[in-house]
């Protein structure tokens, strides 16, 4: 039979972007080990509502670790204690009876808080907008097999393309840098022949946008790789840097 636990929660409440925010505490009994972390928060909210208190807002959608909506910082770790797991896929069996759990939103100037644990990540959209695409119009594509791509190359591009855009890398980075996210998209597209043509413009535009959004510089802490739910390697950042310097030097 499944284990039940008591968990002491401390979570961030902030009524809007201009509110200063504070922590609230609540002790949940009967936390089932099979619950996901977000289901535990659902249960918390059910109890709060029945006690006529305000539920705590948090972002989620797929609950399968793929949409990138969820992004809580739990006891100081983005997506909680396990590596390569998004918080929606984190299960309570990773906790023990009586544990104290602090939940905070990702904190970064470029991710302003909307409410409680929900933040505005539109800065990520704008980074993609700056150049994270291949300029091909619908209908103008060539036959799919016209350009063969080595399997290794395609697999390598895929490894970067799996980024779910959750922002954990920013949350965990001591500098609040978005280099892993930005680098992953640049590396994905620049590695493929389809993305080759625009590689220089892409990297320059995306790096500029990333800076404009107010993210920090990358000091090579590699904490982003440790918290990334899909394990994007900081090689993405190296690729971005090389492509950027190449673009500048060649002046293309």
């Amino acid at each position: 039979m499944s284990k039940e636990m008591t968990i002491h929660l401390k979570y961030w409440k902030q009524n809007g972007p201009n509110d200063t925010g504070h922590f609230e505490e609540y002790t949940l009994d009967n936390v089932n080990e099979h619950m996901s972390f977000l289901e535990m928060l659902d249960v918390l909210n059910e109890e709060l509502m029945l006690e006529d208190k305000e539920p705590v807002e948090f972002d989620y959608d797929c609950r399968e670790g793929i949409c990138g909506s969820c992004n809580l910082v739990i006891n100081g770790q983005a997506h909680g204690p396990k590596q390569r797991v998004a918080v929606c896929q984190l299960h309570m069996r990773n906790y023990n009876d009586g544990d104290h759990v602090t939940i905070e939103p990702p904190r970064a100037a470029a991710f302003p808080v909307i409410k409680d644990l929900v933040v505005d990540r539109s800065s990520f959209d704008r980074i993609i907008e700056a150049g994270g695409y291949v300029s091909v119009k619908t209908g103008s594509a060539v036959e799919a097999n016209a350009i063969p791509i080595e399997k290794e190359k395609s697999d390598a591009a895929f490894d970067y393309a799996t980024c779910i855009g959750c922002g954990a890398c920013v949350a965990a980075c001591p500098n609040a840098s978005a280099s892993l996210f930005t680098g992953a998209k640049i590396a994905h597209l620049n590695k493929l022949p389809q993305g080759e043509v625009e590689r220089s413009n892409r990297v320059v535009a995306m790096v500029e946008q990333m800076e404009e959004e107010g993210f920090g510089d990358c000091s090579n802490f590699a904490e982003c790789e440790a918290v990334c739910p899909v394990g994007i390697s900081i090689s993405a950042i190296a690729e971005m840097r090389k492509d950027y310097m190449k673009a500048v030097v060649s002046g293309e």
Binding site: F23, G76, P81, D217, F221, E223, E225, A226
Partner: peptide, 28 residues
């Protein structure tokens, strides 16, 4: 200094996840 600007409000609790992380006394 940019780091201070990029994260004006810090975490109440913060810890590294280890693994591939290069966070250490040296890097910090």
């Amino acid at each position: 200094r940019q780091k201070k600007k990029a994260r004006p409000e810090g975490y109440d609790t913060y810890q590294t996840k280890g693994g591939p992380s290069h966070q250490s006394l040296a890097s910090r």
